[in-house]
Design a protein around this nucleic acid. Structure first.
Lengths: 227, 227, 227, 227
DNA sequence: GATGAATGAGGCTTCATTCAT
DNA sequence: TATGAATGAAGCCTCATTCAT
């Protein structure tokens, strides 16, 4: 396939400064970092609702009021933690080695990268789900982030249609939405809700279903498990 | 295909008495019903967390304490509302007319019924998502309910494999999970998060992707929208 | 000793009718009795504060409102239960066989009877202690009941002083109060708070202390336990 | 008698820090002290059950929530108030001047000190009785404190038995329990339930009964009141 | 920069008693 | 007699945020 997958360049998620610590003294930056780190740990362990500002500042080893020097609210730290997590997610997903440039290979790589990243950020994924059902602003930010992935997929599918790899009867928007939803939710059931799956089998089976759905040729390497 | 889709007989959702009003006088039953109804409306409008017992009893036109005659907690009414909603969901989904007995027709009918039911219970679906991220017990109950649909799909796929309609390279468990997740999450994005889709197009496209994924022959009746 | 111990005739504890069921139909009397019995069981098991009217009527197998046909308040049933218990207490204490008419024998018999009765009404004694610290009216009734025993003791001591068995340096009022307090509180520590004592040893030791305190000759039958 | 009464060194009441205000700023310590003081006053005036956190914080002149900065519950402040009261009690009792080292003198001094201390802490004694019938944890703490006094008495009696002042027919454990109960309960009837007694007469009469009970020689200085 | 004390509205639940049937 | 639904005041505790030092 000549059409390159869109670059992994990371678009800004929102209007936060890329380096939130700018304008702080080194000491201030350290305090701030300790707060973010403590917040993430607590959010992951206890959830968004059950973590309070008291816990966070205690865990960071600073006074209660210090928290409000760096953040205006609990929501704000959470936003920061989520941004960090998105960066980590993309870093992990991007680190997945490329195996080929045909559609099936790209899809498999994307799925493997996605699952890998999801697995390593599972605790935060659970919490983001919770927080975004509670806080509308977080829900919106989350949808923005999803749109990014969705658009990438839609552009890729459209490209494959131009190349003739995917049939014209497929609506690229629906397909991108539906297949994205499939991968995303499967990961949630797997890593957050605790369904048990074999990593490589999951990658292969979901890639198979994904390719089949689009009419992209794909052959399994592993032998089937059931029957 | 001779293999019949599993019957639409509705299994018991849990061990709650079918008629929760048993042992109540007509007056009591009326009050209880008013509470459940008020609770559902408020949950749908304000969410699980932002609805409190005070709101519910006020809306039902009874005193605060009256609520606790019929329910031991907010969680408990919520459970009842959810049960009601499940019954409604299944009723709507089952009402979808059968068009044929081939795999593609069965899948299309199931998808159309699912979307129809989801659309009409969208408000509660949003709230259930919220409540289940907050309350572990509700999360568990929710997974149980999902398991029921997942198992139905898995059995159907296995049946089609025996019939030779679906290839043996597909793992029925993974496929049922993944495609169920696709339909489920797509409906959530659509009806809860507000993505805009055309009903019949969505049914057709998702059925197409579903069938393709399993290798089941399926032809679109509507013309593609993009390009 | 010629002076007879005051008779065991039971004085009225308060203005309640001796037979509270008077003026009730047989059916009403039965219902009332069931309520009193259920109330006593629950008070003994759960304490005064943790027993509510709902519990009582449920346990008695009658409707909530029925309770208020027979009693005007929780306090009132409690009063009735206490009266029953007092009757029981006196019955047990009076049943103790007389062994002799000398002061030491009378004291020993009184102590043995008191401990025997206390032991068998221990559960209610605990609850009365609780209730009387909470409800001033009950506290007063309780003091009245105590006064009865105190007066008996005072009259006996005064009698023994006239007879020359007890010295004139003893103030009968102080002695009756103090020694009554000793017996009463010792029983509480023993049967309610759970100190472990041997019944006959306790009777003998406390009788010994009691007699010694008053200068009444008394010899132990059991061998001493310690040293 | 050469055997000295055990020293008046005050043992730790429990594992609470001697200075509960450690780790607080002066301002915090002041607020905390105001809360404890307000709590004690209210407990004494209204009882344990009828005093609520709202009352306490209002009386201390702070907001409702401020209470929960310093204490986790009403039970906890109560514990603190009780500890303070125990310290006060021991201080008063220990301040009683020594008159001689013979058994009778020691007993008289102990009784006088006990009554003096009880009299000055009467309000809290009443409340502790109430609270300990309601709250099992407080009941246990109270028994621990009593055990301390009981053990002192038992050791003293055993010592006097070794010295030959008290006969071997007395069981030191029973005697310590019974005579302790006598003093304790007499004080309760007197200072809490409002029986009227003359201070010095009470000291002398109860000391007389106490000594007589143990066979310790004791002569009254005051003339008898009755007859 | 940092501290930590103070705020107070808000939510949940209990229960003695009344009252219409 | 008996029923059981209805009442609503009262109490406990949490926690995001502000502010004086």
């Amino acid at each position: 396939m000549s059409r390159p997958a869109s670059s992994d360049a990371v678009p800004p998620l929102d209007d936060a400064p890329p380096d939130a610590a700018s304008g702080l003294t080194p000491r201030g930056a350290r305090t701030r970092a300790r707060l973010v780190s403590a917040a993430r740990e607590l959010f992951e362990r206890q959830g968004y609702l059950d973590t309070n500002v008291n816990d966070i500042s205690s865990a960071a080893g600073v006074a209660y009021g210090t928290f409000y020097i760096y953040f205006t609210s609990k929501e704000e730290v959470f936003g920061e933690v989520v941004r960090d997590m998105h960066l980590q997610f993309r870093a992990i997903a991007s680190a997945e080695p490329r195996q080929g440039s045909d559609a099936a290979s790209l899809i498999e790589r994307a799925n493997r990268g996605f699952f890998r990243a999801y697995q390593q950020t599972a605790a935060m994924q659970r919490i983001m789900e919770q927080a975004s059902t509670v806080n509308p602003r977080l829900a919106m930010e989350r949808r923005e982030a999803n749109r990014y992935w969705r658009d990438r997929a839609r552009r890729a599918i459209t490209g494959w249609q131009i190349d003739g790899v995917v049939g014209r009867d497929i609506d690229a928007v629906y397909a991108a939405n539906a297949l994205g939803a499939m991968i995303d939710r499967f990961a949630y059931l797997w890593f957050v809700l605790g369904e048990t799956h074999e990593f490589e089998v999951a990658v292969e089976q979901l890639t198979h279903l994904y390719c089949n759905a689009l009419g992209i040729p794909h052959t399994l390497k592993l032998s089937p498990h059931e029957f």
